[in-house]
Deep mutational scan, measured.
Amino acid sequence: SFNTVDEWLEAIKMGQYKESFANAGFTSFDVVSQMMMEDILRVGVTLAGHQKKILNSIQVMRAQMN
């Protein structure tokens, strides 16, 4: 498990989005775990492969939080 959203993004090789997530207010796992595709688009993730990777990881995160 990760301590910060930045660490999580690095771990899934999506570190290039750290600033975008932070600027959009997605700075805690409570918020990130609620993200939908529209949120991912809003933070500027436009590549389908990256969207899928982030969404898949969020689903895993949700499962671990319950």
Rank of each mutant, 00 (worst) to 15 (best):
S1R: 10
S1E: 11
S1I: 13
S1V: 14
S1L: 13
S1P: 15
F2Q: 06
F2D: 05
F2A: 06
N3V: 10
N3G: 12
N3A: 15
N3H: 11
T4S: 12
T4M: 06
T4G: 07
T4Q: 06
T4D: 08
V5Q: 00
V5Y: 03
V5S: 02
V5L: 04
V5W: 03
V5C: 03
V5T: 04
V5A: 02
D6N: 11
D6E: 11
D6R: 05
E7S: 09
E7K: 07
E7P: 02
E7I: 06
E7H: 07
E7V: 05
W8D: 00
W8L: 02
W8T: 00
W8K: 00
W8S: 00
L9E: 01
L9C: 02
L9K: 00
L9T: 00
L9Q: 02
L9A: 01
L9N: 01
E10K: 06
E10A: 07
E10M: 10
E10W: 05
E10T: 09
E10D: 13
E10P: 01
E10N: 08
A11V: 08
A11C: 10
A11Q: 10
A11I: 07
A11N: 10
A11P: 00
A11W: 13
A11M: 09
I12S: 03
I12L: 14
I12W: 03
I12A: 03
I12G: 03
I12V: 04
I12C: 04
K13C: 13
K13D: 14
K13Y: 13
K13T: 11
K13E: 15
K13H: 15
M14R: 01
M14H: 02
M14P: 01
M14I: 03
M14F: 05
M14W: 01
M14Q: 03
G15Y: 07
G15E: 09
G15N: 06
G15Q: 07
G15M: 05
G15L: 05
G15K: 05
Q16H: 06
Q16A: 09
Q16S: 06
Q16G: 06
Q16K: 08
Y17I: 02
Y17V: 02
Y17P: 01
Y17C: 02
Y17N: 01
Y17L: 02
K18D: 02
K18F: 04
K18Y: 05
K18H: 04
K18W: 08
K18E: 03
K18P: 01
E19H: 13
E19I: 10
E19F: 09
E19K: 13
E19D: 12
E19Q: 13
E19G: 09
S20N: 15
S20R: 14
S20L: 12
S20T: 08
F21T: 01
F21E: 00
F21R: 00
F21Y: 02
F21C: 02
F21N: 00
A22L: 10
A22R: 15
A22C: 07
A22F: 14
A22K: 15
A22V: 08
A22S: 10
A22D: 05
A22G: 06
N23M: 14
N23R: 15
N23L: 14
N23W: 08
N23T: 12
N23P: 02
N23C: 07
N23K: 14
N23E: 11
A24S: 09
A24D: 04
A24Q: 09
A24P: 01
A24K: 08
A24L: 09
A24G: 09
A24E: 09
A24R: 06
A24W: 10
A24I: 04
G25L: 04
G25T: 02
G25Q: 05
G25D: 04
G25P: 01
G25C: 05
G25N: 05
F26W: 09
F26I: 12
F26E: 01
F26H: 03
T27R: 11
T27C: 07
T27M: 07
T27P: 02
S28F: 04
S28E: 06
S28C: 07
S28K: 06
S28P: 01
S28H: 08
S28D: 10
F29T: 04
F29W: 07
F29D: 00
F29Q: 03
F29V: 06
D30P: 08
D30Y: 14
D30E: 14
D30C: 14
D30N: 11
D30I: 11
D30V: 11
D30A: 15
V31N: 08
V31F: 08
V31T: 13
V31Q: 11
V31K: 15
V31Y: 07
V31E: 10
V31G: 07
V32Q: 00
V32S: 01
V32N: 00
V32G: 01
V32Y: 02
V32I: 11
S33K: 10
S33C: 08
S33H: 07
S33V: 14
S33L: 15
S33A: 11
S33W: 09
Q34F: 07
Q34A: 10
Q34M: 12
Q34L: 12
M35T: 01
M35W: 03
M35F: 04
M35H: 01
M35K: 02
M35R: 00
M35C: 03
M35Q: 01
M36P: 03
M36N: 15
M36F: 08
M36L: 12
M37R: 09
M37D: 05
M37N: 05
M37I: 10
E38T: 11
E38A: 13
E38V: 12
E38D: 12
E38P: 10
D39Q: 05
D39F: 03
D39G: 03
D39R: 02
D39V: 03
D39Y: 03
D39W: 04
D39P: 02
D39H: 05
D39L: 03
I40N: 00
I40Q: 00
I40D: 00
I40F: 06
I40T: 02
L41A: 10
L41M: 12
L41W: 09
R42G: 08
R42N: 10
R42E: 08
R42Y: 10
R42Q: 09
R42I: 09
R42W: 07
R42L: 09
R42F: 09
R42P: 01
V43A: 14
V43K: 00
V43Y: 02
V43L: 12
V43G: 05
V43T: 06
G44N: 04
G44S: 03
G44Q: 03
G44E: 03
G44L: 02
G44M: 02
G44T: 02
G44A: 03
G44Y: 02
V45Y: 02
V45P: 01
V45K: 01
V45I: 12
T46A: 08
T46Y: 10
T46L: 12
T46D: 07
T46V: 13
T46H: 11
L47R: 11
L47C: 11
L47M: 10
L47W: 07
L47G: 07
L47H: 14
L47T: 12
L47V: 13
L47N: 15
A48L: 13
A48Q: 10
A48T: 10
A48G: 08
A48I: 13
A48Y: 13
A48M: 10
A48H: 12
A48P: 15
A48W: 09
G49R: 13
G49N: 12
G49P: 13
G49Q: 13
H50K: 02
H50P: 03
H50M: 04
H50A: 05
H50C: 03
H50F: 03
H50L: 04
H50N: 04
Q51M: 08
Q51E: 02
Q51S: 06
Q51I: 13
Q51K: 05
K52H: 11
K52D: 11
K52C: 13
K52E: 14
K52M: 14
K52F: 11
K53M: 15
K53W: 15
K53E: 12
K53V: 15
K53N: 08
K53S: 09
K53H: 15
K53I: 15
K53P: 03
I54T: 00
I54M: 06
I54Y: 01
L55Q: 05
L55G: 03
L55T: 04
L55F: 15
L55Y: 15
N56F: 11
N56H: 14
N56S: 13
N56Y: 15
N56C: 14
S57A: 15
S57I: 05
S57T: 04
S57G: 09
S57M: 10
I58P: 00
I58V: 08
I58M: 03
I58T: 04
I58D: 00
Q59I: 12
Q59N: 12
Q59R: 14
Q59S: 10
Q59W: 10
Q59F: 12
Q59K: 15
V60W: 12
V60H: 14
V60Q: 14
V60Y: 14
V60L: 15
M61V: 06
M61D: 03
M61H: 04
M61L: 14
M61S: 03
M61Y: 05
M61I: 12
M61K: 03
M61Q: 04
M61R: 03
R62K: 14
R62G: 07
R62A: 10
R62H: 08
A63D: 15
A63L: 12
A63P: 05
A63Q: 14
A63M: 11
A63V: 09
Q64G: 10
Q64M: 12
Q64T: 10
Q64A: 13
Q64N: 12
M65R: 06
M65N: 07
M65I: 11
M65G: 08
M65K: 05
M65Q: 09
M65H: 07
M65S: 07
M65A: 07
M65Y: 05
N66E: 15
N66R: 09
N66Y: 03
N66G: 12
N66M: 06
N66W: 03
N66A: 14
